[in-house]
Every structure is written in C-alpha cells, then in structure tokens.
Design a protein around this nucleic acid. Structure first.
Lengths: 314, 314
DNA sequence: ATCGCTCGTGAGAGCGCTCTCACAGATCCG
DNA sequence: CGGATCTGTGAGAGCGCTCTCACGAGCGAT
C-alpha cells in the first residue's frame, strides 16, 4: 500500500507514511519481487575477457550510456562479464530465477545461443550488434557497419589510392563481417574484383591490428591505404606502418572505425567512421525497457547511421 | 531441496534433478531471497559523475577487480553511479529492501553519511579510502596515501630541487588530504616550514591539474618540481608546463600518483607513486564478502603499501 | 425515509521457496 | 526379539508483500 495506490484517501496515506518514517520501516523488495515478478534490475552482460571489456572504449561507452538510461528509468544495472562457460551458466540461473527483468547483451560471438535461451526462459534480451544466427527472432540495435565500411573504403579509393587494403575485425562477429562486406562492396562498385591478398584478418584489438598489418605488408609491400575495422586496430596499423618506415597519411592513408575519444588525440589525429556509441547504448536500453513494459509494435531491429569524420590520416 | 542438502539420499537427488531438467524447472530466486535474506548480489557504488567515473582509470580498475572477485565468489555485481540526491535515495531503498547483500562504496565526499545509513539499515558496507568522519565505526581499505605523498616529495627534495610544489587533490576527500599531509611531512622533515604559496588546490582531474599549475606558476614562476596528487592531474601539470615553455623532467621535474596504465605511455613516461589498484579492489570485495558471511575478527581498516616507480619525469 | 450507488477500507489468499518437525522405516544394541 | 537410535521423507508453517473481494459508510435520488 506504500506503493501509493490511487484508491486510498489523502489523510490515510499521510498517516501511513508518517508511521513508516517513525519506525524506519523499509519495504522488503524480495517479497515484492516474488509477487509482482519485477526486480527493478536489468543486466548488462559482456561476453568478452575483462581485459578486452576494459581496454575497449566502445564497451565502456556502452556501459556508461546504459547505466545512465537505466538510472533515469529508476532501475539498477547488474554488470557481468562472462568468459567461461560456467560464468554463463551461473548468469543464466540468476537471470532465469527472476533477479533481472531483462538483459542487454554485448559482443555475442559465433553461434552462441545464449539470447535464445534467455528468451525461452522468459527474459527479454536486446543485443548490441546483429546476431549471426537467429536474426529473425532476436532483438538488436546496431550501427550501419556495412555502410560505414563502404564509406571509408570509397573515400580511400576516391582519393586516388591504388592498393586499398583492409584489416578486419574478428569474423565470428557480425560487426567484423559487415565492415568487411562494406569494404568489398565499395571495391566492387568500381567494377573491380576484390584482391584477397589485400584483406588481412584482425580482431578489433591494437595488437591484432598490428600483427595483421605486419603480415599484410609482408605480402603486399605496395599497399598505400588501409581501412581498419576499429580505432584500436587502426592504432596498431599506424604503429606497424611507422615501424616499417612508412609515413602515415602520406605513404599510406588510414581510416579507423568507432571514433573513440582517443582517436582525436592521436598523432596524427585519426580519420575514422564515427558510430554513435552513446545513442546505441541508449537505444538498446530504451528498447529493452519498452519490451519489459510489454509495449507492442516495437521494431526488432534498429540500425543507427554512421558518418565519416575526416582528420589527418586520410 | 534442489539446493543439494546433505540429508537426501543419492538416488532421490538424481531423480529430482532429472525431473527438473525434464520440465526445465528454474527455481525462483526472489522466493529464495525472501526466506534466506540473501540476494547473491553486491553493489558497486560510485559517488561521482559518469564523466569522472569513466574518465579515471582508477575507478575502472576498481570496477574490474571487484567484478572479477565477485564472480569467483559466484555473486553478481550491481553497478551504480550516483550524482544527484534522488539517485542516492533510490539506491538506498534498493539496498535496504534486500536487493543486495552488501555494498562497495567508492569516492565518498565530505561528511556524506551514506555508509552510516546503509550500515544502520543492516547492509554491510566497505569503503574505498578512509572516510573523513566516522572512521571508528566504518570499514575501509585504502592505499598508504600519506606515505606515498611523503615518498614522492622526499624524492624530489633529495634530487636537489629547491622549490618543490604540490598540486593537490580535492580536499573534501581523504585521499586528497592525506597525500598533501605526506607532502607536508616530507618538507617538514627537512626542518623547513611549508611555504603555502607552493600548494595549489586541484581535484584529481587533468583539467584541474592544468588550472592549478597555471595558477601556481603565476604565483611562483620559480618552482622546479611538482608532486601531483594523481596521474591524471600530472598530465595536466605537464601540459601547463609545456605551454609555459618549460622542459618537463629538466626545468621542472614531476611525480604523479596512481600509476594508471597511461602513465607509462606518456611522452616522457611519467614517474609516479604506484598504488595497487587491483589489489585494493580485491581486498575490498573479499572483506565485504567475509563480513556478509559473518566472519569474525575482521580488520576494520586495511592499508596497502605504495611504491615509487621512477621513469623519466623525475 | 428508503433504496441503490459509489467510494474507501480491511481481511485473507497466494506468490515459491526454506526450514523445522514429526513420523515411518531401517539399523543396532542388549 | 523388543526397545532405542538413527536416517530419510513428507507435511506445513512462514517469509512480507500485492491484489482481489466483500463489506460498511456516505451520498444522492426517488
């Protein structure tokens, strides 16, 4: 009744509140949860190592905006990073047991069926990034990765570069695949076929970008432009380029993806494809909240636009 | 009974598990919480703006280690950042209502009585950093801030610097005060009084460190060494020094505090006092978990040692 | 004055789990 | 072989809330 129903008279409500105050009464939320089925918490789940979660500003940006959006809705965020299968199992029990009302799932790999299992257990789930499998039945918000890859590659091509390579993300993630698809599409739009020796597999990390570039350069010393599938990878690309005596932005131009805050602080400042990280986090959270409210006519997919921000590396 | 009591026979347990599996039964955790009083969650609460929480690697490091430590104990972390009073109120209701078994509280300011209120409501709380008030009754883990401030200042003094200044942290936080105390103590150990024109108030941030240095230099153009109360502040100090035409590490030597990962990547690499961030987070979490278990003879205060890591700015 | 209506209030069931307690059956002792 | 002890099992209370339902008071209409 402390919930503040409409049906109680004014003075009764006040009396009760005063009394509650006096004995410093605090409602037991577990009891409430038991009957209402609502826990007023949602989970923010990242399927990565702690290392990557905390090294990549993308995840941090998503966490930040999700936390903010959840707070304005008056709920709390349960933050979990799962690496090992037993972590996933434990989380599943926690979520299925009703400790959270829904889950925000980041960085789904390969054919992991976690979202399907969560939904089957009645826990609404919203993904960050288009899933590789089950696209029809899952809910997600994503940036326009194909468009972004195309945008970056086209810019490189149009500026007169002849051997435009790409350092990809992990291919077991849709974002990695899509950005590569964008690259291919831009190259093919010129009527050429894609030269596979120009695509080098990375994993979104700086170290991965570095290694992929070294391998690429070994194979194709003549590359004069590189589209890196993430900013972090681009940092690794730049380092590799320097180490092999190339001038970044001159001998080889570079474009990254994400526009994390560090991109502008680089020397030289990184040209990159900006994806609206905060907007992505907010959109995911709002969608999940709406689903929890049971609102109808919600779109299963939301794709946010990206834009090229020109700085000095291309 | 699915909890796995000792008192049930082997085959009965198996039968039940098989049946549970068959109908995909999932225990309702809210019901369990209602009777046991345990929610298997603990809160990680930061009293800062989102901006600072996500800009300062110290907080991120604490979050990371707390998340890891909580996961190995099989619990979940509720991550909250509170700025406004209503956030605090909302969190209080959430915690007092039994949705968390304890709270890890970071960045307590001034005489905020949140920890006392939490404890009064029966929610065990462990602080990061010695509280300004109620030290006797609160539980906390902290780094040796006084010792660190002394270490840095003494090093500057011993290397022959004549006008050793300090850019402090916020003085409404114990860490800010303590590091300043360490500075004073090192200066006084030489038999001199502290020249107050050499202490400039900052706030642990880069912008604050920059502003404090500009003001300091304006007052005392002759400073030849600065102890900054945080690495982020030290970055601001370095920038201000450069902007005013001084050579860092030569005209003016600089020592920071924290040893965040970025410190080593600076140009030149920052000499700093390392505090064991991961160990701090782990110690807090373990202490809280032990308190929740009701273990006795736990120390109310834990102070971890710091060390000077010499790089190139001093 | 009587009837029917609305509005506010109080009682009580039920959410799904854990834990205690009592009992039935098995085991052991003298 | 009877009684005492032990082990495993089942029944039932109770955790603290929300929600429904029935009832009593107050009101306007007849």
């Amino acid at each position: 009744m402390l919930r503040g129903d409409a049906k109680v008279s004014e003075h009764a409500r006040e009396a009760v509140h005063a009394a509650a105050e006096a004995i410093s009464y605090v409602p037991n939320l577990a009891a409430r949860t038991l009957v209402t089925g609502r826990s007023d918490s949602i989970a923010f789940l990242v399927e990565e190592t702690e290392e990557r979660m905390f090294a990549d500003p993308f995840f941090l940006g998503m966490l930040r905006s999700a936390q903010e959006a959840v707070a304005v809705a008056g709920l709390q965020l349960v933050f979990t990073v799962v690496n090992r299968p037993e972590d996933q199992q434990r989380f599943l029990a926690y979520a299925a047991g009703g400790h959270v009302d829904g889950v925000l799932l980041l960085s789904l790999h390969g054919r992991d069926r976690l979202p399907q299992r969560l939904e089957a257990l009645g826990v609404p789930t919203v993904l960050s990034g288009r899933p590789l499998s089950g696209r029809r039945r899952l809910w997600y918000v994503d940036a326009d990765n194909v468009g972004g890859g195309r945008l970056a590659t086209a810019h490189l091509l149009e500026s007169g570069r002849r051997h435009v390579a790409t350092v990809t993300g992990p291919l077991d993630m849709c974002a990695g695949q899509d950005r590569l698809t964008g690259y291919r599409s831009a190259v093919e739009a010129l009527g050429r076929g894609v030269d596979e020796s120009l695509v080098s597999i990375g994993d979104f990390t700086q170290a991965g970008g570095h290694a992929a570039t070294i391998a690429l350069l070994d194979r194709r010393p003549d590359v004069d432009a590189i589209f890196a599938a993430s900013d972090l990878a681009a940092f690794g690309v730049v380092r590799a380029l320097r180490e092999t005596g190339r001038r970044v932005g001159e001998d080889v131009t570079v474009i990254g993806f994400d526009d994390i805050p560090e991109a502008a602080d680089q020397e030289p400042p990184l040209t990159t494809v900006r994806q609206p990280i905060a907007a992505l986090g907010t959109a995911m959270t709002r969608l999940l909240l709406d689903r929890i409210e049971g609102r109808a006519d919600l779109p299963r997919r939301t794709v946010l636009p990206v834009e090229l921000v020109r700085r000095q590396t291309a």
